[in-house]
Design a binder for these strands. Structure first.
Lengths: 359, 359
DNA sequence: GTCTATGTTTGAATCGATCCAAAGAAGTTT
DNA sequence: AAACTTCTTTGGATCGATTCAAACATAGAC
């Protein structure tokens, strides 16, 4: 019934309907933006013209340029886009970020890319008011790219050593201590550590020195410092504690456990630097009928919801993920030019995966 | 070292650096867009000026207006934003959509809103080249809103009866038949059905007629038709099969099971219209020591990955989720003005939650 | 009949880029 | 020396809106 609804290309601009209705484009704009200041008769005439010509309303592209604000924040990662939907930690974080955005009416743009070149372009051309950067891996380059846009931005996790970038992170050292103390107090003395990466794309057994010297991932380093500081306090010789770095996926976690449990001294307690690793470890242990926490206790890190329903439920160091998401969104939207670095506290959540040492 | 990096507002435009470098704005633009056609000496001069003035590169806002294309697709839902990260089906779908986007270099904008008014505005002002609409609930309004933008768009799930909108869906009738036949062939004769909504925000026991007459959710209706067509074929009186509608959440699923198992004739087989419901049902049954599939068999719908690792693994009707995501993205990006309605086939995936009838 | 207050409408300026036809420069042929 | 290439650069037009000071109407006050 309406005219030309099925026309292929349909470049009807505000100016067109203004002309058709016999008013200036200024008035036509007001009809949509502030209808109350336009005389009713004129308003109806313009609306009728718009309807007749199949005008879809003011094009946001035009408005955007004038207004300057996009009203959307970009969430960037160097991982593929699907990371946001696959990784448990990312999902919880995104859920909290999206709640904060919903509350303020801001949209979310996901930014990422298959390769590095694409990533640069995607960040440079993202239509956003600011960036929240997940710097899980290869963070430094991502942060640099985001910085170059000169938009408000905040890094999640303080992996970047660069003091000049705004960041929201957690106290990794305290978190490590919390986990280690819990197990030590339960009487454990033989430990093994499932670590996150300390250098790009590396996995396998490493030493404390290697982690300390590879400056790229301060999160890994600090959690380890927390573990070791506490274990030393209990008189444990940390130089004998095996550390196995994984890629935070099932395959390398399993490889790590094979390695650890092939050592002469089997551990009674495992410190995992992520819940994801801990959950994979739980599977591996169950398959081998190694009782948790009867034979081996395990403590994760992150506090993802999956940990609450695993078999057994996972003792873990919980990050205030919801709080972090909220603060990140706030930092972007209420940006005042200052860039602060926030260190949030973590919490030990004791569930059933940790118990007294069998010894 | 660099000039005014910390200035509060910093409106450096391309024209500014052009003037500073003593070239026309056209040339300055070329330095960034097609550097190879600019003489090296000039190029360096412009770049130096940009650097000195703290120019972050061409503002995408400006480029956008000229180019017309945003290079991003919007994914819209009437649920809160966090739906994308919480719901298993949505997550798998989003993962496949994001893979398709990654492959083509397109970005993703998440569109949603707390209330209906916000939703309208968010859709009207979203900077996207097209919409993929998740019309799980309240689909019709959402579809209408997206239509009004007159951008390419495609609805996921054919819940909208409106033949004029492009949509990608699955053969719900065939899917229902597949599930029902599988159980009937295993000897089951006493069935119960956990249904999705057939009318807005409704849950509780319903009759076949109620589902048939509430036209809002054709997905629910068609799955039911598939179930009943097949059960009738096996001589089962479908008017005696209890149907309980849930909100697809734990609470209402549990309420549904309480209801169903309080009936005089306990079922030996449950047909669930979503994996999410089926998984909650599995929990409920385990808590009551009702053996699956010993006492009761259950078949889900969707084919989410969680179903493969549940206890026991879930027999289900798998949707080609990855394929749907890919096709949806393709439909937006290669939009040729035509709107097609695609009906994709589904697959029965037999796992351990279904077995011979105990009778 | 002039003045003022109030309510509408106008049209130029602006947002920040890209595109392109035409002009200019420098080097080759004829 | 004129004609023809080839390579660079220029500056105006354009994308689609919003904003705002000024112009214009209309009505009521004096």
């Amino acid at each position: 019934m309406t005219a030309l609804t099925s026309g292929k290309t349909r470049p009807v601009r505000l100016a067109d309907i203004a002309k058709a209705a016999g008013v200036s484009h200024g008035t036509a704009s007001n009809v949509f933006a502030r209808p109350e200041i336009v005389r009713e008769e004129v308003r109806e005439r313009v609306k009728a013209a718009a309807e007749a010509m199949g005008y879809a309303g003011p094009d946001p592209k035009g408005r955007l340029l004038r207004a300057g604000k996009v009203n959307a924040i970009g969430v960037a990662t160097a991982e593929p886009l699907s990371y946001f939907f696959d990784d448990p930690f990312a999902r919880v974080m995104m859920a909290s970020i999206s709640q904060a955005c919903d509350a303020t009416g801001a949209g979310i743009s996901l930014v990422s890319a298959a390769n590095n070149e694409q990533l640069a372009w995607n960040i440079q051309s993202a239509l956003v008011d600011g960036f929240i950067v997940f710097c899980i891996e290869g963070g430094s380059r991502l942060v640099e790219l985001a910085r170059e846009r000169k938009l408000p931005f905040v890094a999640l996790d303080l992996d970047s050593e660069n003091e000049a970038v705004a960041a929201i992170g957690i106290d990794n050292i305290a978190g490590g201590s919390l986990a280690a103390r819990h197990l030590a107090e339960l009487g454990h003395r033989r430990f093994a550590i499932l670590a996150l990466e300390s250098a790009d794309a590396g996995f396998g057994p490493v030493t404390q020195e290697q982690v300390e010297t590879s400056s790229l991932y301060s999160g890994t380093r600090d959690r380890l410092r927390g573990y070791f500081a506490e274990l030393s306090r209990f008189g444990i010789d940390v130089s004998l504690v095996p550390i196995y770095e994984t890629l935070n996926d099932e395959e390398t976690v399993r490889a790590g456990l094979e390695h650890i449990f092939a050592l002469p001294q089997r551990p009674t307690a495992i410190l995992a630097m992520s819940d994801r690793m801990a959950l994979h470890a739980l599977d591996w242990l169950r398959e081998r009928d190694i009782a948790v926490p009867g034979d081996v206790s395990i403590v994760g890190f992150d506090g993802v919801p999956e940990g609450a329903v695993s078999k057994p439920p996972l003792t873990t160091v919980a990050q205030p993920i919801a709080e972090m998401g909220r603060l990140a969104v706030k930092a972007i939207l209420e940006n005042d030019g200052s860039h602060q670095r926030l260190l949030l506290p973590v919490d030990l959540v004791v569930r059933a995966s940790s118990g007294p040492s069998p010894g």
